[in-house]
Protein backbone atom coordinates (compact mmCIF):
# COMPACT_ATOMS: atom_id res chain seq x y z
CA UNK A 1 0.00 0.00 0.00
CA UNK A 2 2.36 2.73 -1.13
CA UNK A 3 1.54 6.14 -2.44
CA UNK A 4 1.27 5.05 -6.08
CA UNK A 5 -1.46 2.63 -5.06
CA UNK A 6 -3.40 5.51 -3.59
CA UNK A 7 -2.63 7.60 -6.66
CA UNK A 8 -4.23 4.90 -8.84
CA UNK A 9 -7.27 4.77 -6.59
CA UNK A 10 -7.47 8.54 -6.70
CA UNK A 11 -7.36 8.52 -10.50
CA UNK A 12 -10.01 5.78 -10.61
CA UNK A 13 -12.21 7.72 -8.23
CA UNK A 14 -11.87 10.89 -10.29
CA UNK A 15 -12.59 9.03 -13.51
CA UNK A 16 -15.69 7.42 -11.98
CA UNK A 17 -16.68 10.82 -10.64
CA UNK A 18 -16.42 12.37 -14.10
CA UNK A 19 -18.63 9.66 -15.62
CA UNK A 20 -21.15 10.15 -12.83
CA UNK A 21 -21.01 13.87 -13.48
CA UNK A 22 -22.01 13.35 -17.12
CA UNK A 23 -25.02 11.24 -16.13
CA UNK A 24 -25.99 13.42 -13.20
CA UNK A 25 -25.65 16.72 -15.03
CA UNK A 26 -28.15 15.45 -17.60
CA UNK A 27 -30.48 14.40 -14.82
CA UNK A 28 -30.17 17.66 -12.94
CA UNK A 29 -30.62 19.69 -16.14
CA UNK A 30 -33.85 17.85 -16.94
CA UNK A 31 -35.12 18.10 -13.38
CA UNK A 32 -34.04 21.67 -12.79
CA UNK A 33 -35.48 23.04 -15.99
CA UNK A 34 -38.39 20.77 -16.80
CA UNK A 35 -39.29 19.57 -13.31
CA UNK A 36 -39.36 16.01 -14.59
CA UNK A 37 -38.12 13.12 -12.46
CA UNK A 38 -36.72 10.95 -15.21
CA UNK A 39 -36.39 7.39 -13.93
CA UNK A 40 -35.56 6.31 -17.47
CA UNK A 41 -32.29 8.25 -17.31
CA UNK A 42 -30.37 5.06 -16.57
CA UNK A 43 -31.95 3.47 -19.62
CA UNK A 44 -30.27 6.08 -21.79
CA UNK A 45 -26.94 5.20 -20.21
CA UNK A 46 -27.69 1.63 -21.23
CA UNK A 47 -28.76 2.69 -24.72
CA UNK A 48 -25.49 4.58 -25.06
CA UNK A 49 -23.47 1.55 -24.04
CA UNK A 50 -25.30 -0.78 -26.40
CA UNK A 51 -25.21 1.63 -29.32
CA UNK A 52 -21.48 2.11 -28.80
CA UNK A 53 -21.05 -1.65 -28.77
CA UNK A 54 -23.26 -2.11 -31.82
CA UNK A 55 -21.84 0.63 -34.03
CA UNK A 56 -18.30 -0.22 -32.99
CA UNK A 57 -18.73 -3.79 -34.08
CA UNK A 58 -20.37 -2.63 -37.32
CA UNK A 59 -17.71 -0.10 -38.22
CA UNK A 60 -14.74 -1.68 -36.43
CA UNK A 61 -13.90 1.71 -35.07
CA UNK A 62 -14.83 2.98 -31.61
CA UNK A 63 -14.67 6.64 -32.62
CA UNK A 64 -17.05 6.13 -35.56
CA UNK A 65 -19.21 4.07 -33.24
CA UNK A 66 -19.57 6.98 -30.85
CA UNK A 67 -20.05 9.51 -33.63
CA UNK A 68 -22.91 7.39 -35.01
CA UNK A 69 -24.42 6.69 -31.59
CA UNK A 70 -24.69 10.34 -30.50
CA UNK A 71 -27.18 11.48 -33.16
CA UNK A 72 -29.23 8.32 -32.66
CA UNK A 73 -29.59 9.02 -28.93
CA UNK A 74 -30.43 12.66 -29.60
CA UNK A 75 -33.26 11.54 -31.88
CA UNK A 76 -34.50 8.89 -29.45
CA UNK A 77 -34.49 11.42 -26.61
CA UNK A 78 -36.35 13.99 -28.70
CA UNK A 79 -38.94 11.40 -29.73
CA UNK A 80 -39.48 10.18 -26.16
CA UNK A 81 -40.04 13.73 -24.96
CA UNK A 82 -42.53 14.51 -27.74
CA UNK A 83 -44.40 11.20 -27.58
CA UNK A 84 -44.61 10.64 -23.83
CA UNK A 85 -43.03 13.12 -21.42
CA UNK A 86 -44.62 16.20 -22.99
CA UNK A 87 -48.05 15.13 -21.76
CA UNK A 88 -46.99 15.21 -18.14
CA UNK A 89 -45.76 18.74 -17.45
CA UNK A 90 -48.95 19.78 -15.71
CA UNK A 91 -49.27 16.56 -13.74
CA UNK A 92 -48.05 15.48 -10.33
CA UNK A 93 -44.47 14.16 -10.01
CA UNK A 94 -45.88 10.76 -9.20
CA UNK A 95 -47.24 10.28 -12.70
CA UNK A 96 -43.87 11.15 -14.16
CA UNK A 97 -42.38 8.49 -11.93
CA UNK A 98 -44.94 6.00 -13.17
CA UNK A 99 -44.50 6.87 -16.83
CA UNK A 100 -40.72 6.85 -16.79
CA UNK A 101 -40.84 3.56 -14.87
CA UNK A 102 -42.87 2.17 -17.78
CA UNK A 103 -40.22 3.54 -20.14
CA UNK A 104 -37.58 1.53 -18.24
CA UNK A 105 -39.58 -1.65 -18.85
CA UNK A 106 -39.95 -0.81 -22.52
CA UNK A 107 -36.29 0.07 -23.06
CA UNK A 108 -35.13 -3.04 -21.21
CA UNK A 109 -37.34 -5.21 -23.38
CA UNK A 110 -36.23 -3.48 -26.59
CA UNK A 111 -32.64 -4.01 -25.54
CA UNK A 112 -33.35 -7.73 -25.05
CA UNK A 113 -35.06 -7.93 -28.43
CA UNK A 114 -32.30 -6.11 -30.30
CA UNK A 115 -29.17 -7.36 -28.57
CA UNK A 116 -30.17 -10.34 -26.43
CA UNK A 117 -29.25 -11.02 -22.82
CA UNK A 118 -25.57 -11.77 -23.35
CA UNK A 119 -22.75 -9.79 -21.83
CA UNK A 120 -20.76 -7.94 -24.47
CA UNK A 121 -17.43 -6.23 -24.30
CA UNK A 122 -16.13 -3.37 -26.36
CA UNK A 123 -12.44 -3.34 -27.22
CA UNK A 124 -10.45 -0.35 -26.03
CA UNK A 125 -9.50 1.58 -29.16
CA UNK A 126 -6.02 0.59 -30.40
CA UNK A 127 -4.49 4.04 -30.08
CA UNK A 128 -5.35 4.27 -26.40
CA UNK A 129 -4.82 0.70 -25.28
CA UNK A 130 -1.46 1.37 -23.68
CA UNK A 131 -0.77 2.38 -20.12
CA UNK A 132 1.27 4.96 -18.32
CA UNK A 133 4.03 3.57 -16.11
CA UNK A 134 3.73 5.07 -12.65
CA UNK A 135 6.36 3.03 -10.83
CA UNK A 136 8.21 -0.14 -11.72
CA UNK A 137 5.20 -2.37 -11.22
CA UNK A 138 2.26 0.03 -11.21
CA UNK A 139 0.75 1.26 -14.45
CA UNK A 140 -2.37 3.21 -15.32
CA UNK A 141 -4.34 2.56 -18.52
CA UNK A 142 -4.33 5.46 -20.98
CA UNK A 143 -7.98 4.91 -21.88
CA UNK A 144 -9.12 5.73 -18.35
CA UNK A 145 -7.19 8.99 -18.53
CA UNK A 146 -8.87 9.61 -21.86
CA UNK A 147 -12.29 9.17 -20.25
CA UNK A 148 -11.48 11.83 -17.67
CA UNK A 149 -10.08 14.09 -20.40
CA UNK A 150 -13.17 13.72 -22.61
CA UNK A 151 -15.42 14.38 -19.65
CA UNK A 152 -13.50 17.57 -18.92
CA UNK A 153 -13.92 18.64 -22.54
CA UNK A 154 -17.64 17.85 -22.46
CA UNK A 155 -18.05 19.66 -19.14
CA UNK A 156 -16.29 22.75 -20.54
CA UNK A 157 -18.41 22.59 -23.69
CA UNK A 158 -21.51 22.35 -21.53
CA UNK A 159 -20.36 25.32 -19.47
CA UNK A 160 -19.79 27.28 -22.66
CA UNK A 161 -23.20 26.38 -24.10
CA UNK A 162 -25.03 27.22 -20.90
CA UNK A 163 -23.17 30.43 -20.05
CA UNK A 164 -22.33 31.89 -23.46
CA UNK A 165 -24.89 30.89 -26.07
CA UNK A 166 -28.42 31.98 -26.75
CA UNK A 167 -29.71 28.45 -26.14
CA UNK A 168 -27.94 28.41 -22.80
CA UNK A 169 -29.46 31.76 -21.93
CA UNK A 170 -32.97 30.47 -22.57
CA UNK A 171 -32.19 27.31 -20.62
CA UNK A 172 -31.04 29.32 -17.62
CA UNK A 173 -34.01 31.61 -17.92
CA UNK A 174 -36.34 28.61 -18.21
CA UNK A 175 -34.87 27.14 -15.07
CA UNK A 176 -35.58 30.22 -13.02
CA UNK A 177 -38.96 31.25 -14.42
CA UNK A 178 -40.74 29.11 -16.96
CA UNK A 179 -43.85 31.26 -17.40
CA UNK A 180 -41.82 34.41 -17.95
CA UNK A 181 -39.77 32.77 -20.68
CA UNK A 182 -42.92 31.57 -22.36
CA UNK A 183 -44.53 34.97 -22.25
CA UNK A 184 -41.40 36.50 -23.78
CA UNK A 185 -42.13 34.50 -26.89
CA UNK A 186 -39.75 31.58 -26.51
CA UNK A 187 -41.18 28.26 -27.67
CA UNK A 188 -40.94 26.48 -24.35
CA UNK A 189 -42.18 23.19 -25.77
CA UNK A 190 -39.31 23.04 -28.21
CA UNK A 191 -36.88 24.21 -25.53
CA UNK A 192 -37.99 21.37 -23.27
CA UNK A 193 -37.66 18.80 -26.04
CA UNK A 194 -34.13 20.02 -26.78
CA UNK A 195 -33.14 20.04 -23.10
CA UNK A 196 -34.50 16.54 -22.60
CA UNK A 197 -32.75 15.28 -25.69
CA UNK A 198 -29.45 16.88 -24.64
CA UNK A 199 -29.82 15.71 -21.06
CA UNK A 200 -30.35 12.07 -21.88
CA UNK A 201 -27.57 12.21 -24.47
CA UNK A 202 -25.19 13.21 -21.68
CA UNK A 203 -26.17 9.99 -19.89
CA UNK A 204 -25.77 8.02 -23.11
CA UNK A 205 -22.34 9.58 -23.69
CA UNK A 206 -21.24 8.37 -20.27
CA UNK A 207 -22.49 4.92 -21.22
CA UNK A 208 -20.53 5.03 -24.47
CA UNK A 209 -17.29 6.17 -22.85
CA UNK A 210 -17.62 3.58 -20.10
CA UNK A 211 -18.38 0.72 -22.49
CA UNK A 212 -14.74 -0.33 -23.09
CA UNK A 213 -13.94 -0.21 -19.35
CA UNK A 214 -17.02 -1.97 -18.04
CA UNK A 215 -18.74 -4.69 -19.98
CA UNK A 216 -22.10 -4.06 -21.61
CA UNK A 217 -24.90 -6.09 -20.03
CA UNK A 218 -28.67 -5.96 -19.46
CA UNK A 219 -29.71 -3.81 -16.52
CA UNK A 220 -26.48 -1.81 -16.71
CA UNK A 221 -28.45 1.41 -16.34
CA UNK A 222 -30.23 0.57 -13.08
CA UNK A 223 -27.29 1.00 -10.75
CA UNK A 224 -26.24 4.14 -12.60
CA UNK A 225 -29.71 5.62 -12.25
CA UNK A 226 -29.84 5.31 -8.49
CA UNK A 227 -26.29 6.48 -7.94
CA UNK A 228 -26.78 9.51 -10.18
CA UNK A 229 -29.91 10.43 -8.25
CA UNK A 230 -27.77 10.28 -5.14
CA UNK A 231 -25.25 12.61 -6.80
CA UNK A 232 -27.93 15.08 -7.84
CA UNK A 233 -29.50 15.15 -4.40
CA UNK A 234 -26.18 15.60 -2.61
CA UNK A 235 -25.26 18.46 -4.93
CA UNK A 236 -28.66 20.11 -4.78
CA UNK A 237 -31.29 19.54 -7.42
CA UNK A 238 -30.92 21.67 -10.52
CA UNK A 239 -27.38 22.79 -9.78
CA UNK A 240 -24.74 21.72 -12.29
CA UNK A 241 -21.96 22.85 -9.97
CA UNK A 242 -23.57 20.76 -7.24
CA UNK A 243 -23.74 17.78 -9.57
CA UNK A 244 -19.99 18.12 -10.19
CA UNK A 245 -19.08 18.29 -6.50
CA UNK A 246 -21.55 15.50 -5.70
CA UNK A 247 -20.18 13.28 -8.47
CA UNK A 248 -16.60 13.74 -7.30
CA UNK A 249 -17.57 13.07 -3.66
CA UNK A 250 -19.44 9.90 -4.59
CA UNK A 251 -16.77 8.77 -7.07
CA UNK A 252 -14.03 9.10 -4.48
CA UNK A 253 -16.14 7.78 -1.58
CA UNK A 254 -17.11 4.71 -3.58
CA UNK A 255 -13.59 3.98 -4.82
CA UNK A 256 -11.90 4.47 -1.47
CA UNK A 257 -14.79 2.79 0.33
CA UNK A 258 -14.11 -0.36 -1.67
CA UNK A 259 -10.45 -0.25 -0.70
CA UNK A 260 -10.67 0.78 2.92
CA UNK A 261 -13.98 -0.73 4.04
CA UNK A 262 -14.54 -3.61 1.63
CA UNK A 263 -17.23 -5.29 3.71
CA UNK A 264 -19.54 -2.28 3.67
CA UNK A 265 -18.39 -0.50 0.52
CA UNK A 266 -21.79 -0.17 -1.13
CA UNK A 267 -23.29 1.38 1.97
CA UNK A 268 -20.71 4.16 2.10
CA UNK A 269 -22.23 6.30 -0.64
CA UNK A 270 -25.72 6.08 0.79
CA UNK A 271 -24.46 6.83 4.27
CA UNK A 272 -22.66 9.85 2.82
CA UNK A 273 -25.88 11.00 1.21
CA UNK A 274 -27.91 10.58 4.38
CA UNK A 275 -25.23 12.50 6.26
CA UNK A 276 -25.20 15.38 3.78
CA UNK A 277 -28.99 15.61 3.75
CA UNK A 278 -29.11 15.44 7.54
CA UNK A 279 -26.81 18.41 7.67
CA UNK A 280 -28.25 20.27 4.67
CA UNK A 281 -31.70 18.92 3.72
CA UNK A 282 -31.63 20.82 0.40
CA UNK A 283 -28.28 19.46 -0.77
CA UNK A 284 -24.94 21.27 -0.92
CA UNK A 285 -25.87 23.83 -3.57
CA UNK A 286 -29.64 23.57 -3.46
CA UNK A 287 -31.86 26.57 -3.06
CA UNK A 288 -34.08 26.64 0.00
Amino acid sequence: MDSSFYLIQLLNGIQYGFLLFLVASGLTLIFGIMGIINLAHGSFYMIGSYLAFWFTSLTDNFLYGILLAIPVTLVVGYAVERLAISYLYQRDHLYQVLLTYALILIFNELQRMLWGSDVHSVAVPQAFSGSVQLTENQAYPVYRLLISASCIVIALAMYWVIQKTRLGMTIRAGASNREMVQSLGINVNRLFAVVFSLGVTLAALAGMLAAPVNTVYPGIGDGVLIISFVVVVIGGIGSIKGAFIGAMLIGLADTFGKVLLPEMASMVVYALMALVLFWRPQGLFGKG
Binding site: V233, S266, Y270, A274, L277, P281, G283
Partner: peptide, 27 residues
Protein backbone atom coordinates in the same frame (compact mmCIF):
# COMPACT_ATOMS: atom_id res chain seq x y z
CA UNK B 1 -34.44 11.61 9.85
CA UNK B 2 -36.33 11.62 6.54
CA UNK B 3 -39.26 13.88 7.40
CA UNK B 4 -36.82 16.71 8.02
CA UNK B 5 -36.57 16.89 4.25
CA UNK B 6 -39.43 17.45 1.88
CA UNK B 7 -40.35 16.95 -1.76
CA UNK B 8 -37.79 15.25 -3.93
CA UNK B 9 -35.29 15.21 -1.07
CA UNK B 10 -37.66 13.12 1.00
CA UNK B 11 -38.04 10.71 -1.93
CA UNK B 12 -34.28 10.38 -2.20
CA UNK B 13 -33.62 10.06 1.54
CA UNK B 14 -36.07 7.20 1.88
CA UNK B 15 -34.47 5.60 -1.16
CA UNK B 16 -31.03 6.03 0.37
CA UNK B 17 -32.07 4.33 3.59
CA UNK B 18 -33.66 1.44 1.71
CA UNK B 19 -30.49 1.01 -0.34
CA UNK B 20 -28.39 1.04 2.84
CA UNK B 21 -30.47 -1.76 4.32
CA UNK B 22 -30.36 -3.59 0.99
CA UNK B 23 -26.57 -3.54 0.87
CA UNK B 24 -26.34 -4.29 4.58
CA UNK B 25 -28.19 -7.59 4.10
CA UNK B 26 -26.60 -8.18 0.69
CA UNK B 27 -23.09 -7.97 2.05
Amino acid sequence: ISIRASGVYFIMLTLAFAQMFYYFFFE
